[in-house]
Nucleic acid binder design. Structure first.
Length: 194
DNA sequence: TACGTGATCACG
DNA sequence: GTGATCACGTAA
């Protein structure tokens, strides 16, 4: 079942980042379904320095200010497309970076997109999973309740004792806010990024 | 540890 | 316009 839009429109981005673990991120382009179980996320909120929206709205981050339930995809280091889920109400610019997946459907297609012959660590990192699922900036601002890009709920939920909290990666510029334990990952899951 | 890579942002 | 910066990944 696709997650309802109300899932994304709650106000606590940290809670939603935890809740996303165990959900399934899916894409379907030209009939090719690819998906993976979300095993690592990071929360970002406009109130703290780690967030792109901290200094207000720009051309790049404007979709973060829209009502939750859409994607925010941007190019990082000139090479990698990073996929985020926009949450909260209009004007409250929060988002969750999806950092790693455990591959589920369409593994052959993912290997083809990655130009590799083995699925080993094929979706273990935020730049890699977008490439494996075929996500790029053309999907920025897209509704997460549609035919090409969505997130599904599966029966089993990750219990809180199996969730590891840690500091977010690669935001040294954020000062004290870099110490927030807003990165969440599934304990002992081999697909978590290194 | 070092660096490729190009859009973006804050200057003027 | 321009230059510094960057929510990564790979090689070494």
């Amino acid at each position: 079942m696709k997650l309802p839009i109300s899932f994304y429109q709650r106000q606590n981005v940290v809670t939603i980042a935890r809740d996303l673990l165990g959900k399934v991120l899916c894409t379907q382009f030209n009939g090719n379904l690819t998906s993976g179980i979300i095993v690592e996320t990071e929360a970002y909120s406009f109130v703290e320095r780690g967030c792109h929206a901290y200094r207000g709205m720009t051309e790049r981050n404007k979709v973060m200010f829209e009502l939750g339930g859409i994607s925010y995809v941007y190019l990082c280091y000139g090479i990698h497309h990073l996929f985020n889920v926009v949450t909260n109400r209009e004007g409250k610019a929060d988002a969750i970076l999806v950092r790693a997946l455990e591959p589920k459907n369409g593994i052959e297609m993912m290997m083809e997109r990655m130009h590799v012959k083995s699925p080993k660590r094929i979706t273990s990192g935020p730049g890699k999973l977008t490439k494996a699922l075929g996500i790029d900036r053309s999907h920025n601002g897209k509704q997460l309740f549609d035919q090409e890009l969505w997130i599904e709920e599966v029966s089993k939920k990750i219990s809180s004792k199996n969730i590891i909290e840690s500091k977010r990666i690669g935001i040294d510029y954020a000062g004290e806010d870099a110490n927030l334990l807003w990165r969440f990952s599934v304990k002992k899951n081999e697909w978590v990024s290194k």
